[in-house]
Amino acid sequence: MSENNQVQEPSLYERLGGEAAVNAAVDVFYGKVLDDYRINRFFEKTDMAKQVEHLKAFMTVAFGGPNQYTGRSLRDGHARLVQKGLSDSHFDAVMEHLGATMQELNVPAELIGEAAALVESVRGEVLGR
């Protein structure tokens, strides 16, 4: 067998459960975020229906699913929030809610770790540095 015929590992998106899993996670996640006094002020003037759809599309792409994301870059999308004081402590709170959401949805620990590493890898972009 040649090297080109190797079986490709399923993406994190597929291993998490695909579209249904991403949709469920985003819905639970934003419930936690909007209940958190540390970060909910950043969403005061946000069209949450639109925001939910953006995050679902972004997470799908980030986790290796089909690319339907047409939003702004992470840096551009968060620039206004950085001007309002978005910092590492806020990013940490978001990471906390992502982990709690995935645990609540019974995602295996190794997949939570993979997802967290992907999100952590964009911290600098989100915080504009």
Rank of each mutant, 00 (worst) to 15 (best):
22 V>Y: 03
94 V>D: 05
102 M>I: 10
66 P>L: 12
68 Q>C: 01
67 N>E: 08
28 V>F: 00
58 F>E: 04
74 L>M: 15
96 E>N: 10
11 S>Q: 05
79 A>Y: 04
100 A>Y: 02
52 V>L: 14
20 A>I: 09
39 I>W: 02
57 A>W: 07
12 L>M: 03
64 G>S: 07
10 P>D: 06
39 I>F: 02
33 V>H: 07
109 A>T: 14
12 L>G: 01
11 S>F: 08
127 L>T: 12
73 S>I: 10
18 G>S: 09
85 G>R: 00
96 E>A: 06
90 H>Q: 11
34 L>I: 15
128 G>E: 00
34 L>D: 15
20 A>C: 02
126 V>C: 02
31 G>F: 14
60 T>G: 11
1 M>H: 07
47 D>I: 06
85 G>N: 01
50 K>N: 09
20 A>T: 13
45 K>I: 00
94 V>K: 08
116 A>C: 04
117 A>T: 11
30 Y>S: 08
31 G>M: 14
47 D>H: 07
10 P>A: 10
64 G>C: 05
84 K>H: 03
94 V>H: 12
47 D>Q: 09
111 L>F: 09
17 G>D: 07
35 D>C: 03
16 L>G: 06
77 G>T: 08
80 R>M: 01
81 L>W: 02
94 V>A: 14
69 Y>G: 06
23 N>R: 13
114 E>V: 04
43 F>C: 11
66 P>V: 13
94 V>P: 08
122 V>R: 04
60 T>S: 15
19 E>A: 05
96 E>G: 06
8 Q>Y: 01
13 Y>R: 08
14 E>G: 01
33 V>G: 09
23 N>D: 13
57 A>C: 05
27 D>R: 12
25 A>V: 02
81 L>S: 11
102 M>G: 07
79 A>Q: 11
24 A>W: 04
32 K>S: 10
25 A>H: 01
21 A>Y: 03
